[in-house]
Design a protein around this nucleic acid. Structure first.
Length: 720
DNA sequence: AGCACATGTTTTTTT
DNA sequence: AACATGTGCT
C-alpha cells in the first residue's frame, strides 16, 4: 500500500474503511448521525482515483445542497493532490447542466430560464384566469403543489389521472398540461423539471443514456433517505450495467417527505440490487453519550424503521438542560443569558453555538433579544437576498434578456418601473400573442399590428420591447455587472427608486450593488462568465449555501437547514405541542414520525451541550396562545435532563438598565449627535421626543431610519 | 394608471 | 404582526 492510500484510510474505523475501499457494484452505507458520512464519501472518491486508477471524469457525486457539494469537492481535492475533474454537485445543478447540453432533444433551447416558485405561481394563476377558474376558491399554490407532486412521481400530464375523491385533481388535470405547454413556450424549466426532464430524456433516448452511462461509471449519492421518486429514477438511469452505485444515508434523518422524499427508496435499496453490499456506520464521533441517548430514546418511538445501535466514545457529558419559559420572549432571554455566560467563561465562543427552531417565524423574538443585548448572531434562511423585490426585478430583466421567451420575467417587469402599461393593455398584448401563436415578447414587438391597441399604447409597449432588444445587443459586448448598470439607468429603475422610496432607497440600491459584486466574483471564478451561467447559479442557490463558517456569531436556523451540520452547543427552541410537532402534522402518523425524525436531527447536531426550551405562552398569529409541552419531551428519560430553575429572564430589558443604560434620559441625547449601535453601526440622531420614555429617531449609515427607545437601546455616543 | 385604504392570509419545513 | 392582494377613488 503506498503512502497516499494510507493517508486516505488514516483514522478510519473498520466499517468506514470497508466503505471507502468498496470498488464495483452496488453499496448502501447506512450512516448514523455523526458517523463520518461525508468523510466516507470523500475518501471513497479519492480512493477510487488513487488506488483503483479510476479516471476522475468517470465519477458523479450528487448531493442536495451546493454547500455539501463544495465541501466534498474541497476535501477530496486535498486527498489527491490534483484538481479533481469529477462531477460533484446537487441533483438540480446536474439536471440543469445536462439540460443545457441536451435541451434541443426535448424541444427547448439551451438558454432556457429556471422558474422559481413565485414564477410558477404566476403561470398557474394566469392559466386559471384564462380558464375562468376562481383563484380564491382554489388557490394557485395548492394546484402548484399537486403539479409538483405529480412531477416528483414522474407522472406526465397525459398520465395524470383524476381522483374522484380529490376535488383538486379535476382542476389540476386541466391545468397541468397547459402549464407544461406554456413552460415550453417560455423556454423554461421549473425545479421539478430539472430532475424529471433528464429522466424523460434518458428514457426516450437510449443512446443518450448509454453515452452518460459510459461517461459516469461510478455514481455516488449523498442523503439518499431524502431522494424523491424522480431523483431515485434519475440515479437509477445514470447507473450503468455494472451497477456501480454507492449511496449513503440515514433513514432516521429523512425529513423532506413534504417535498416528495420517499424513505422507501433507501429502505428498499437491497431489493433493487440484490447483491448490494450493506455497510452500517454506527460509531458516532460527534456527540457526548447523554446527547446520543436522548436522541435514541426519541427516535425509537417511530414504528417503521431499521433499528440501529449508535454508540459514542466521547464520554457521558453534561446533562441536557431543559428550561420551561413563561413566554417566547423569556425563552429567548434564557438563550441570550446562557450564551453570554458561556462566551464569557471562554469555554465556548458564540461561533460554537446554534439556535434551532421548527419555523422561520420563531427567529424574530430570539433575534430581538440578541440584538438588544449586543450578542452577535447570523440567520440562515428567512428573508433571502435573492427574494428581495429589487433583486428579483433586476434578475427578471436579465432573464428576459437571456431568454426572450421567458413569460414570467416579462410579466414581472413590463410595468416596472411604471411605464403606463396597465392590466388592460397587457391583456391585449397577451391575447394577440395567443391568437398568433407567438411569444409574449414577440407580441410586444409587433404591437403596431395589434388592432386592439391604440397608437399611444402600442408605442409604450414597443418602446419597452426595444429597450430589451437594446440590452440583448449589449449582452456579449459588456460584462454582466455593467449590464446591470445600464439597466438601472436606461429603464429609469434607479431614478424611480430614488424618487419615491426615501430612506429605503439607499438600501435597495446597495442591494443591487451587492448583486453586482456577486457578479464580479462570478466573473473571476468562471472563465466564460456568461449571463446564462450566472442566472443558473442564482436560481439554484440555497440558504445554507450562503452561510458563513466560523466568525464569532451565534447561528440561528431552522431544523431543516441544520441537517448535516454540527455545533458544540445547540439550543433547541420551541418544544411545544402544536409548534413542534407542528399542528399541521399532528393528525397523521407518518407525518408525526417525520416530525420525530426532525427532532432526532436536531438533538444529534449537538456535540457537547444541548439545551432544550419551551414556552408556556407564545405570540403567534398576532395573539398570545397557550402551549402544552411537546410529546417529544416526554420521550427523553428524566435521568438525562436537568431542569433549570426559573430565573427572571423575561425582564432582560430591565436588567439592561442596571447594566449600563443610565443615559436613558433625553438630556443625554441631542439632535445631530452621532451614536454607535452594535448591529447597525454609526448613526446620527434626527429627532428626540418624549413618548413613553425617550424616543430617538436615528438615521444609520445603511441609510435606514430607526426609532429606538433610549431606555433600551444599546447606544454609545461617538466622541469627536 | 396609480394611490390609499381595507381586507384577507399567513407560518412548516425547501432545491 | 407583517405582508400580499383587492377595491374604490381620483
Amino acid at each position: 500500500m503506498n503512502s497516499i492510500d494510507k493517508q486516505i484510510l488514516a483514522g478510519l474505523n473498520q466499517p468506514q474503511q470497508e466503505a471507502v475501499k468498496h470498488y464495483k457494484g452496488p453499496a448502501l452505507v447506512l450512516a448514523g448521525a455523526g458517523s463520518g458520512k461525508t468523510r466516507v464519501l470523500t475518501r471513497r472518491i479519492a480512493y477510487l482515483i488513487a488506488e483503483y486508477g479510476v479516471n476522475p471524469g468517470n465519477i458523479l457525486a450528487m448531493t442536495f445542497t451546493n454547500k455539501a457539494a463544495s465541501e466534498m469537492k474541497e476535501r477530496a481535492n486535498k486527498l489527491i493532490s490534483e484538481d479533481m475533474r469529477s462531477w460533484v454537485g446537487t441533483f438540480h445543478s446536474f439536471g440543469a447542466t445536462l439540460l443545457r447540453k441536451e435541451a434541443g432533444k426535448l424541444g427547448f433551447k439551451r438558454n432556457f430560464s429556471i422558474y422559481d416558485t413565485s414564477d410558477q405561481k404566476r403561470m398557474v394563476k394566469e392559466i386559471m384566469q384564462d380558464l375562468n377558474i376562481d383563484t380564491k376558491q382554489t388557490k394557485p399554490s395548492r394546484v402548484l403543489n399537486e403539479i409538483s407532486d405529480a412531477k416528483n412521481q414522474l407522472i406526465r400530464p397525459k398520465d395524470y389521472k383524476v381522483d374522484k375523491f380529490n376535488y383538486l385533481s379535476e382542476i389540476v388535470a386541466q391545468i397541468y398540461p397547459l402549464y407544461q405547454q406554456r413552460m415550453k413556450e417560455s423556454n423554461a424549466f421549473d425545479f421539478d423539471d430539472l430532475i424529471m426532464k433528464p429522466c424523460q430524456l434518458f428514457t426516450e433516448y437510449p443512446k443518450v443514456k448509454e453515452y452518460y452511462n459510459e461517461k459516469y461509471k461510478y455514481i455516488l449519492v449523498d442523503e439518499y433517505q431524502d431522494v424523491n421518486h424522480a431523483q431515485y429514477r434519475l440515479s437509477q438511469l445514470l447507473t450503468g450495467s455494472e451497477n456501480n452505485i454507492f449511496v449513503v444515508g440515514d433513514p432516521d434523518q429523512s425529513i423532506y417527505g413534504f417535498r416528495g422524499a420517499d424513505i422507501n427508496n433507501i429502505l428498499n435499496f437491497e431489493n433493487d440490487f440484490s447483491n448490494a453490499k450493506v455497510i452500517r456506520l454506527e460509531q458516532n464521533y460527534r456527540s457526548k453519550e447523554n446527547i446520543l441517548k436522548a436522541a435514541q430514546s426519541v427516535i425509537k418511538n417511530n414504528s417503521s424503521r431499521l433499528d440501529k445501535d449508535l454508540w459514542s466514545e466521547r464520554g457521558e457529558g453534561d446533562s441536557i438542560e431543559f428550561f420551561e419559559a413563561a413566554t417566547d420572549k423569556e425563552e429567548a432571554g434564557f438563550i441570550m443569558e446562557e450564551a453570554k455566560k458561556m462566551n464569557r467563561s471562554g469555554r465556548y465562543s458564540y461561533g460554537d453555538m446554534v439556535v434551532l427552531y421548527r419555523t422561520n417565524a420563531q427567529s424574530r423574538s430570539i433575534e430581538d433579544v440578541l440584538r438588544r443585548n449586543q450578542v452577535p448572531y447570523q440567520i440562515v434562511g428567512g428573508l433571502k437576498f435573492y427574494d428581495r423585490k429589487e433583486i428579483k426585478d433586476i434578475v427578471a430583466y436579465l432573464r428576459l434578456i437571456n431568454n426572450p421567451a421567458d413569460t414570467a420575467a416579462l410579466l414581472r417587469i413590463i410595468n416596472e418601473p411604471a411605464r403606463g402599461i396597465g392590466a388592460k393593455t397587457l391583456e391585449r398584448v397577451q391575447d394577440y400573442a395567443y391568437a398568433n401563436n407567438i411569444s409574449l415578447f414577440q407580441s410586444c414587438q409587433e404591437s403596431e399590428k395589434n388592432p386592439e391597441l391604440t397608437k399611444a399604447y402600442a408605442r409604450k409597449v414597443i418602446e419597452f420591447a426595444e429597450l430589451i432588444a437594446e440590452f440583448q445587443g449589449l449582452e456579449n459586448e459588456i460584462t454582466i455587472d455593467r449590464l446591470v448598470s445600464k439597466i438601472l439607468s436606461k429603464t429609469g429603475y434607479e431614478s424611480e427608486i430614488l424618487a419615491k422610496e426615501g430612506p429605503k432607497a439607499q438600501e435597495r440600491l446597495e442591494n443591487i450593488g451587492e448583486l453586482q459584486s456577486a457578479m464580479q466574483e462570478y466573473l473571476q471564478d468562471n472563465d466564460d462568465g456568461s449571463l446564462a451561467g450566472f442566472l443558473e447559479e442564482v436560481a439554484l442557490i440555497s440558504d445554507i449555501d450562503t452561510m458563513e463558517d466560523k466568525n464569532n456569531f451565534i447561528t440561528l436556523m431552522t431544523l431543516h437547514s441544520a441537517k448535516g451540520l454540527e455545533f458544540p452547543v445547540v439550543f433547541l427552541a420551541g418544544l411545544d405541542e402544536g409548534l413542534f410537532p407542528h399542528s399541521n402534522s399532528m393528525d397523521d402518523t407518518s407525518e408525526i414520525e417525520e416530525e420525530r425524525r426532525l427532532c432526532y436531527v436536531g438533538i444529534t447536531r449537538a456535540q457537547d451541550k444541548l439545551y432544550i426550551l419551551r414556552a408556556k405562552n407564545r405570540f403567534r398569529y398576532g395573539e398570545s396562545k397557550y402551549y402544552a409541552p411537546s410529546r417529544f419531551l416526554n420521550e427523553i428519560p428524566d435521568s438525562l435532563i436537568n431542569c433549570e430553575e426559573d430565573g427572571n429572564y423575561d425582564s432582560i430589558d430591565i436588567k439592561d438598565n442596571n447594566n449600563r443604560n443610565n443615559n436613558a434620559k433625553s438630556s443625554n441625547y441631542r439632535e445631530g449627535q452621532q451614536v454607535i449601535h452594535p448591529s447597525w453601526g454609526i448613526g446620527k440622531i434626527k429627532q428626540v421626543k418624549e413618548d413613553k420614555g425617550t424616543k430617538l429617531t436615528i438615521r444609520f449609515k445603511d441609510g435606514k431610519e430607526r426609532e429606538l427607545l433610549a431606555e433600551y437601546a444599546p447606544l454609545q455616543p461617538v466622541r469627536r
